[in-house]
Design a protein around this nucleic acid. Structure first.
Lengths: 242, 242
DNA sequence: ATAATAGTGTCTCTCAGACACTATTAA
DNA sequence: TTAATAGTGTCTGAGAGACACTATTAT
């Protein structure tokens, strides 16, 4: 029987590096985009100058928990403080970081950003930039971030089939046509309007929020999410099979 | 802009403790049970003598990855080497371990154990023992293991509503009535035989494996899981709503 | 009136659940 | 023959998808 918790196994030089990374998604110009940051070009750092998911070391002085650490990193990059933030999983092994055995706790966040007409003005800074997810997945990313980003996209698309997640990508209030568009953008396929509306209204997670002043065409009812703390699960998936 | 990866943030004394814990489930006497281990009674250790989930520090010398670490801990406690093993999530904060900031990577495993008639002979050792999940959840557990165990049970019960997970709790080959019993035990409710059989066979994740020699009553067709690497997802949940 | 957008009604198909029915085995 | 267990058939209802339809707005 192996003894655990002894002084030797607790030695600090045995401890893995611990990081938190966040895949932050937003809709921009009817496209699902993810925020990437450029790593420092200092050749002392691993993967200098490469694109990576926002993240970094857990600061045991500053972060009271992993979740708070993820919130801090999200806020630092986007200013957003009340996002949809879900734990994605952890990746840890001896080779993912050249500095040594490391484990990262990955989260994914859904936020709302204002639409922009000009793609050039859309970069929050020189070091961080929004990319369409398909484009981001084609890039070479630092560490195992391509794998993590891919897992985030798979998880997001999979949950979109049976949850209300795309609602968190919209600023409130929003209309049902806008919500449908959000689903269609994330899933990359068109959906039937009638079935979509029945499903959303029957799920009863929205509350009415007055009429929009239509820019063109008929004015629409607008809605807010009743409980922003949790995503609603539908009784069936959109497409059966898988 | 905070610089990451500098010598100061990499200092080993800043690193959290890193552990892996595994909630190991098995069916025993028509009950869903979970394996708990008793912590050392050495008062130097945290939570001496209390029940806990099997787990412990990641050994950077021995474990090439978090997953391998979980496999190692599972094998050490049960001898099982090819289980269903899924990452559950991570829990990390400044207060869960009295020794300091710590983060644990939790997994849950579904294994098959031989049925035993006498509950007393069922303890693998003095330090580890199978408990019905409801009983385990009523215990006082070390660290935040009650929270983790609860998350594991919630996740398991939730996934059972739309996946083939309970098949991994049975030794192969098994019959459809046995599989139905497995679902009923995990979910704690009876299911309709006809609907159940249609669902399982339509999902096409089982292959026939000859007839059982019935102890009593009609002999039954027995089945094996086609691909033990992955759980099948059904197009609908068992009960709609949630 | 027309274009554009919002929203509804109707039909069909699939599948879960209820439940009564038949089939095969041992004693 | 009876008890016990395995397995099937039939009906109903909920909800997804297809698609044609109506409703409301600006120009």
């Amino acid at each position: 029987m192996k003894k655990i918790g002894t002084a030797s196994t607790m030695a600090t030089f045995d401890r893995p590096l611990v990081t938190v990374d966040v895949a932050i998604f937003a809709l921009r110009n009817d496209t699902l985009t993810v925020l990437l940051v450029r790593r420092l070009s200092d050749p002392q750092d691993p993967f200098p100058g490469q694109w990576a998911l926002p993240g970094g070391f857990v600061d045991v002085k500053q972060d009271s928990s992993l979740f708070e650490c993820a919130v801090r990193k999200l806020k630092a990059k986007t200013g957003v403080t009340t996002p949809y933030l879900e734990q994605l999983g952890s990746w840890g092994d001896e080779s993912r970081d050249p500095r040594g055995w490391s484990a990262t706790h990955a989260y994914f966040a859904l936020i709302q950003v204002p639409e922009v007409a000009d793609a050039e003005t859309s970069a929050p800074s020189l070091e961080s930039q929004w990319f369409p997810v398909e484009e981001a997945l084609r890039k070479r990313l630092a560490f195992d971030h391509k794998q993590i980003l891919n897992a985030a996209v798979v998880r997001l698309r999979s949950k979109v089939e049976y949850t209300s997640l795309p609602a968190f990508l919209l600023s409130e209030p929003f209309t049902l046509p806008q919500l449908q568009k959000s689903y269609e953008v994330v899933l990359g396929r068109a959906m039937d309007k009638s079935a979509f509306r029945k499903r959303m209204l029957d799920a009863n997670f929205l509350e009415e929020s007055g009429m929009t002043d239509g820019v063109q065409g008929r004015v629409a009812m607008s809605y807010r999410i009743k409980d922003r703390q949790l995503a609603t699960t539908f009784p069936r998936m959109f497409k059966s099979g898988e």
